[in-house]
Structures are given as structure tokens and as C-alpha cells.
């Protein structure tokens, strides 16, 4: 059985929904990103406690009508990419939350 992967939003990023897109700024290098709808769902669900495969199954497959294997492959690549930019943390263990306010505000 493959190992579980946990993802959490980095506590050092700034983020806000602007229209349909999530705006994310990483404190590392003050770089600004916009997340597409799939990345936004992944990012919002990344609570450090829910394994990536569960996020893919419960949030991504259902919302975007993609096959689980395909969705998982894309999600892993996406998570790695977001981690590279300091937006997401990835671990094989659950990641304790540093940010008590978890919900994202929409205008």
C-alpha cells in the first residue's frame, strides 16, 4: 500500500478569493500567484489532517468529473508545484495547523 501524503497551506502565505480565482502571495520572494479552480479546491482543502487521496476523492473528483487515477496524478503534480513555491506544505505525517482561522473569505 502506498504511503499517505498530507498537505497543508503554508502559514507564511497571503490569500484571498478575487472573483472566481484565488490570489496567493508567498512571503518567500513576494511572488503573486493565481490558482485555477482545481488548485483552489486543493488549496482550500489542504488542512494538514486530510490525506491527499481523500481530498482528491471527496473534493476534486466530485467537483470536476475526472477519473480518480488521473485526478490523483494531477493533484500530486500540482501539490509538488505549489510546495516548490512555498504555498503548500507536503508531509507523510499529518501537519499540525499553525493558523486557527481556516476558512477562506469571499467578497
Amino acid at each position: 500500500m502506498s504511503k499517505k501524503v498530507y498537505v497543508a497551506r503554508s502559514p507564511r502565505i497571503a490569500a484571498r478569493m478575487l472573483g472566481e480565482e484565488m490570489l496567493v502571495m508567498s512571503a518567500q520572494g513576494s511572488t503573486l500567484f493565481t490558482l485555477n479552480p482545481t488548485a483552489t479546491v486543493l488549496w482550500q482543502a489542504a488542512d494538514g489532517a486530510t490525506p491527499l487521496d481523500e481530498i482528491v476523492e471527496s473534493r476534486i473528483c466530485s467537483e470536476f468529473e475526472v477519473k480518480p487515477e488521473e485526478a490523483m496524478r494531477d493533484a500530486e503534480a500540482l501539490a509538488a508545484d505549489l510546495a516548490k513555491h512555498g504555498i503548500l506544505l507536503i508531509s507523510e505525517e499529518p501537519i499540525p495547523s499553525k493558523s486557527p482561522v481556516q476558512e477562506q473569505h469571499r467578497p
Binding site: 502565505i13 497571503a14 490569500a15 484571498r16 502571495m25 493558523s99 482561522v101
Partner: peptide
């Protein structure tokens, strides 16, 4: 701290 919890760019 609270402002950062609300994910503002500060």
C-alpha cells in the same frame, strides 16, 4: 497575528 490568520498580505 490575527490579521495573518485571516491571510492578509501585510
Amino acid at each position: 497575528e490575527y490579521a495573518r490568520e485571516l491571510t492578509f498580505c501585510i
